[in-house]
Each structure stands twice: as structure tokens, then as C-alpha cells.
Design a protein around this nucleic acid. Structure first.
Ligand code: FES
Ligand code: FES
Lengths: 149, 149
DNA sequence: ATATTAAAAGACCTTTTTATCTTTTATTAT
DNA sequence: ATAATAAAAGATAAAAAGGTCTTTTAATAT
């Protein structure tokens, strides 16, 4: 579905968000290790995401990546479009130059429904919501927090 | 969503099916022109599909491609898997090595629903059903949109 | 038979994606 | 200050996707 770069970015951003919640700023080495992505490729990806403002970074000792806590939740869609464009969210499944309601391809109806659902997922979910999701699952198994839910 | 090769194959197969219904056997030149795909790339793709048995061909004067009318409808899924594998139909949207119900990624639930719908589309629709679809409505086929020419 | 037609085969090329490595710059702890 | 640390920058490269071209083989019309 997504490019490798997008997958690494998604996993890495969620990992950074999770660590930030623990008052930690993971570096490239840690991120790459945890999301099981190649070190240098991960470095390059987050370098770009930093330049684009999706993540902040600090150099030097104790440095690493963090997500601006002031900023509101980041929808997956914004991140994905920045990496691989919006073709997946607007394009025709049959490969026509553009999906046109008035000139539909033979799978327009069914594919349109799938595309709508994809749009709903990436517009509705955010890096933060995925992090919270991960956290709640973890909490369900953790010994410290058996009581609530 | 799909690779270019898959898109060309889908469009080409539907075009062949449509022409076969008119008792015609289109050649590579005609197919490539009609689906607006590069000639030699189209040639290579259908050469491979012929070898794999998805389409039959005749060399020489009056030759071209045709779909065995004896064979039952060909589900898109079979064709797509032959070209680009089944990752799209079984893989994890977050990029985990495999989608595991017991070890779900943070988008497992929502992505799973999308993947299910994709599977439903490609298992339910066939080259023949898309061709019939094109015939019944006045659907777009070429990559051009009629109103913009 | 021969000329013509059209697919098969396979070598070749270009671009994009994925990945690696080295050097430079910024930050911090000491 | 200086040593240690970690990201930024940018060059390089392997692999996959996308595309092109030439030669060979098969079929048919004449
Ligand atoms: S025209 Fe193909 S999906 Fe809309
Ligand atoms: S584990 Fe990611 S989609 Fe199922």
C-alpha cells in the first residue's frame, strides 16, 4: 500500500511520540533499531521530516528527535502526502489519468468506496492517536495498571 | 494502488475481452494505442501473460490476442497476484513483517477493513465483469477524459 | 515459394526507490 | 577549551520499476 519510506516514517514518528510521552528524545540509532529500519535510511528520512517541520531535532549530547507538544495532532494524511504525494487518495484504480465521476472507469464505483475509506483512515487517525492506541494496548498487559479500564 | 504494469494489464485484458466480443483479435499496436500505454512495454506484458496462460495469441497475418472463451471468468485477483504478488492482499498497512491478529499494529483494525474491501473487489470482479460493465454503461476506457478534448 | 505480418525473445537503457557511507556542523558535559 | 555526541548534508550505489529496441520465429496471403 505505502512506500517503504512512508512506512518507516509512520513507525518512526509513532515511536518518537511514544518516547516523548516518557520525556525521552530518541536518536536515529534508537529509532532505526526499534522500528527495524536501516540506520542511514532512517537518518535521511527524519532529516527530511525535520526540515519539513514534522519533527524537531536537537544535535549534540543528549540530542534526538521530538514532536512539538504545542502542535495539534498530525493527521497521517499530511505526513503521507509530504512523502509520496496524493495519488493514492485521489487517483483512479484502473489507472486513468484522473478519476472522474462523469467519465468513470469500470471499477469506479467499487474502487471509490475503498479510496474513501483510505481517506477516512488517514484523515481521521494521527500520529498521536496511533501512539495512544499503542499505549492503551500496552497498558492492558502491564502489571502496574491492571486496575483501570 | 497498483503498479503501472498491473494497470496496463487490467486495461489491456478488458480491451481484448471487449474486442473478442466483437469477433476481433487486437494486436499489440492496437491495444497499446487504445489503453494509452507504451508499445514495447505493452508487448512485453502481454507476452508474459500469454506465457502464463491468461491470454492466447496468434502470430502472423490476422494474428493478435484473445481470451479463451471456454475458460470461466478470470478474477482480477489472479491476474494481479501473477504480476505483483499478494502483499497488497495480506500485508500490514503499518509495514510490520506480517499482519498478525494476535500482535496487531496500531492501525490493524481500520486497515484490515480496507484490505478486506480490496480483497472483495478483486475476488468478486473479473476481466469479463469489467468488460460487461463497460458495455452496459457508457464508461470511460481510454485514459483521456472525453470532455477535455 | 515468397513477401508480409505479427508475436516471442531477449538485450539494453532510464528513472525511481531503497540503502549506504563519509564529512561537516551543532550541542553539551566535563 | 576540549572531548564526546548526535544530527545535517551530500556523495555514492544497489535494486526494482518502467520503458525501448533489435532480432528471431511463426503464420498467412499472394
Ligand atoms: S474513474 Fe477509475 S476510480 Fe474513478
Ligand atoms: S498488523 Fe498491521 S494491519 Fe494487521
Amino acid at each position: 500500500m505505502f512506500k517503504k519510506e512512508t512506512e518507516y516514517a509512520l513507525r518512526g514518528m509513532v515511536y518518537i511520540q511514544l518516547q516523548n510521552l516518557k520525556e525521552r528524545r530518541p536518536g536515529v540509532a534508537e529509532i532505526a533499531r526499534e522500528i527495524e529500519a536501516p540506520y542511514f535510511f532512517t537518518a535521511k528520512i527524519f532529516q527530511r521530516l525535520a526540515k519539513q517541520g514534522f519533527v524537531k531535532s536537537m544535535k549534540g549530547k543528549g540530542g534526538g528527535f521530538f514532536i512539538d507538544p504545542e502542535k495539534k495532532d498530525l493527521p497521517l494524511k499530511e505526513l503521507i502526502i509530504a512523502i509520496e504525494g496524493e495519488e493514492l487518495f485521489i487517483g483512479c484504480g484502473f489507472g486513468l489519468k484522473n478519476c472522474d465521476e462523469n467519465n468513470p472507469c469500470p471499477m469506479h464505483h467499487q474502487y471509490g468506496m475503498i479510496r474513501d475509506q483510505i481517506n477516512q483512515l488517514v484523515a481521521g487517525e494521527t500520529i498521536q492517536s496511533l501512539a495512544r492506541n499503542t499505549l492503551s494496548k500496552t497498558l492492558a498487559f502491564s502489571r502496574e495498571n491492571v486496575d483501570e479500564r
